[in-house]
Nucleic acid binder design. Sequence first.
RNA 1: GCGGGUGUGGCGGAACUGGUAGACGCGCCAGACUCAAAAUCUGGUUCCCUUACGGGAGUGGGGGUUCGAUUCCCUCCACCCGCACCA
Length: 862
Amino acid sequence: MSDARYNFKEVEPRWQKAWADADVFAAPDTSDKPKYYVLEMFPYPSGRLHMGHVRNYTLGDVVARFRKAQGFNVLHPMGWDAFGLPAENAALERGVHPGTWTRQNIKDMRAQFGPLGLSLDWSREISTCEPEYYRHEQKMFLDFLKHGLAYRKESWVNWDPVENTVLANEQVVDGKGWRSGVPVERRKLNQWFLKITQYADDLLQAIDVLERWPDKVRLMQRNWIGRSEGARLQWTILTPDGTPLKDKLDVFTTRPDTLFGASFCAISPNHPLAVQLAEQNTELADFIADCNRLGTSEEAIEKAEKKGFDTGLTAQHPFDAEWEVPVYVANFVLMDYGTGAIFGCPGHDQRDMDFARKYGLPVICVVAPKDADAADFAKRLEEGDEAFTGDGVAIKSEFMDGLEVDAAKRAAIEKIEANKQGEGVVQFRLRDWGVSRQRYWGCPIPVIHCDSCGAVPVPDADLPVTLPEDVTFDQPGNPLARHPTWKKTKCPSCGKDAERETDTFDTFFESSWYFARFCDPKNESLGFDKALADQWLPVDQYIGGVEHAVLHLLYSRFFTRALKDCGYLSVAEPFDGLFTQGMVGHETYRGEDGTWLSPDEIKRFDDGRYVRLTDDTHVHVGRSEKMSKSKKNTVDPAHIIGTYGADAARLFMLSDSPPERDMEWTDAGIEGAWRYLNRLWRLMQDVDASATDLPAVDSHDEPSASLVKAAHKAIAQVTDALADFRYNAAVAHIREFSNTIGDAEKASAPARRFAVETLARLANPLMPHITEEMWSALGGNGLLVDQPWPKHDPAMLVEDTITLAVQVNGKMRGTIDVAADADKDTCEAEALKLPTVQAQMDGKQVRKVIVVPGKIVNVVVG
RNA sequence: GCGGGUGUGGCGGAACUGGUAGACGCGCCAGACUCAAAAUCUGGUUCCCUUACGGGAGUGGGGGUUCGAUUCCCUCCACCCGCACCA
């Protein structure tokens, strides 16, 4: 009699050691097998693994183990996204150096990874905060400079007043910093930019090719890139006394067809013309200052009134020199989009309509629905407050009259181009990626500023530019900027005294190419060897949270293209398949005073009431929300794994919900998973390991035959489910199969042994430790992790007799058992014999009988 | 406001190209074992009527197509997510 309970504490570490000793997860660069690159978004080394990590890496591990068994040469690496602000905050709070803090966290987290039993190739581990890593991205940046893909310019930026640094557009969410959560301010700074807009069209079009990406993410990227077709046209600006300004006003529009409905022009408060006018006009200067003070937060925009300031200038209509419209500075015109100037057509743009009504500007209808009475429609529109933005035909528009919107647009653009007043253009919402950050714990930007030569690249021979260790965090601001000596250097070009760039790269810089570094992680002279990158890339299956849909995932797509154009590698798309997993949540609890309570501060009664342990007061139970410290609903993975083991944690995570959906962590769920492991354990102990002589399926031994058939069915079902990320369904099929084995008491010993062995093999990617133990107990050769994936025999799925559903008028009335190849007449006759069918036919006639072979018999009566 | 997604028992969720709705699990109920508990095992568990046999209703609401709809079409509702003064 062996142990009644499965002892994971002994079993799991033993197999982890066996895998490590045999080095089974190392990915050789040369192999006969086809490659398969599985990657999960690498973690920031916070020091603590959380449940979100466990879910992410478990999902990736299932992919990796399944593909390995299917005969692929699997690359499944792990590393650390090690630069970032939390390290500096730790330095500030505890006086520990960011490097020391980060490296200790990496050590701690690596230790926490061990008990999970993941199939990782640790020989490829990388850490982005080490010069061995970031020196290569300094080189890449210099190559981008040479290829015109990086530039420096002064511009308005998003300034996070808490993090004391600039943020990229993608890092501003609802007008707030993505990490600090405080409203960003606008500042004008000199910044380094990467020319992501150069690839806007390609990044957009190639989304169509990313068929193995979630539609949601593809859509988000499409919207973010925001392509719109329209025209740019130049308006001549006249001063109040009628003299034209030297510079014409460049305006972007998507509706050139509505030009004859123009009633004003408006420019952004930050438009050069506005700034210039404000120099002589304090009222305008105050207005501009007012606009800039306004936050960009959601509420601020919502509440903000559309305000304009009449400059007194007028703009000459492009198609009619006699026609002049007023020029406003308006708070709703963005300097960041288009040209920072618009023409207003109140009849066909709601915002322009609101503006026109407020400032008493004319409303001219120039598009009417095809079937409407044009004059009547125009009258109502021009008297009302609603703009018409639908499709229709141009009216009161001279040469465009009668044309539908699209045709009118083309005609307008033709005319504008013929008149040399502008041209048809494609405008993107996407902005260039600002990568300068005024922080210490990041990769130094390898540039030297010289008074005579300007910004000079650091020569290749002087790379890497490493971070100084002796920095202080006793005051706000960038420690690099106030370091006494670090920035002092000589100009590589003229040799005079010069200063280093003290900004560092955005942390998304490191994560934009790490997947390529894993292909050749030890390369000292290059970021990676081109041949190796070409061999392993693209990543076949990438897995991570949807929160990076337009951050990391877009930057990486751009970066890979830029690297390609600089000759680093050959692929343009880094991630062939993407899977975005849901969050791990937990119920939340609040006391009567509103404070959050953790699960161990409350007590649940059988009747469903919850009270606070300290004083028995009522506890409000909230819905499941993403685990967070502030809501006190976190569950520590280390504690769970210590109590139930990695396999139980993995099983629960995989079985509870489909992987793309949010899941709720519950005690009952993990308990249930743990019970199942013990069930597997007992199942295994009932098997005679020596019964290896599985006979051919014999109809005289029905119990054995059906068990073997069930095994083949399970192989087919589990294989399909694993192949398309239906892991919860895979678990259901595995459990169903174990129920079948448990019930098959009359099956022969060889049949039972075969079934349990098959079960172990199918469950291996999900529960690698206990299945390895089962394999070994059944006398399997070598390690289960090295075994090929089982194949089902299609002949085994064919049944002799089948059960057909019988309906009367579409309602289920019973079932019949017939031979699998029974003809329609037989099925019909059998169905009509059913008493429940007869009862329904009382006094009625059979109109017809529909027999769908193998599916259903439907008797239509009436 | 624009765009997208989701809606199935007490709960998480199954259901291939329209064909036995509720697989699998959680929870719950009953029983076995036990002095007792835990663990385990057996049976039950969509709702309503019925001792049972059986019948009726049922996949967010309403309508449609079909012999047959969770699945296809129209419409409405609720919730979630993304973007948001984008010219």
